[in-house]
Amino acid sequence: MKQDPYEIFGLERSFEIDLDALQKEFVKLSAKYHPDKYVDPIEQMDAAEYSSEINVAYQALRDDESRANALLALMGGPSKEDDKSLPPTLLMEMMEIREEMEAAVEAKDNATVQKLRQWAEEEREEYLGMLGQIFSKVSGKTVTESEGKQIRLHLNSLRYIERMLEQTPEEV
């Protein structure tokens, strides 16, 4: 990401953001920098470039997981590549739950699919809650080493939950 997405939308660097305000600002900025509004070819090119930055920034902030990743990077925390830590039993648990989910999908057992999706959605809320708590306690512009590690651990875990939800049908 070239630019700080928070800066583009004039928002405070915070995990909790006003999503309605973000969307309104996005619509406004997209209209303002729409390349068709410019006649001068250089201005048109600049507008096209800025429009695509606005898009990237919007995608980064709109989704909770990607916003947390973006904010952690801005606050000097470790990236996924730098710190792959996970709670020790998480992969085993995910493997078992995903096998259970796969069997339920194959058997068209909608009740079990719903139960497991609900479990994943509750896990997601729990991780997001913990992330929000740690971010809200960060004082200053950067995370401490321990805050960075904790946030990264929760984000790494959350990815497996999101992946499960991405890869399972909403109903069977």
Binding site: K84, L91, M92, M94, R159, Y160, R163
Partner: peptide, 13 residues
């Protein structure tokens, strides 16, 4: 062996 890909959340046994 059970492993995971942090980039995408894939799990493999």
């Amino acid at each position: 062996g059970v492993v995971g890909a942090p980039e995408c959340g894939d799990v493999m046994k």
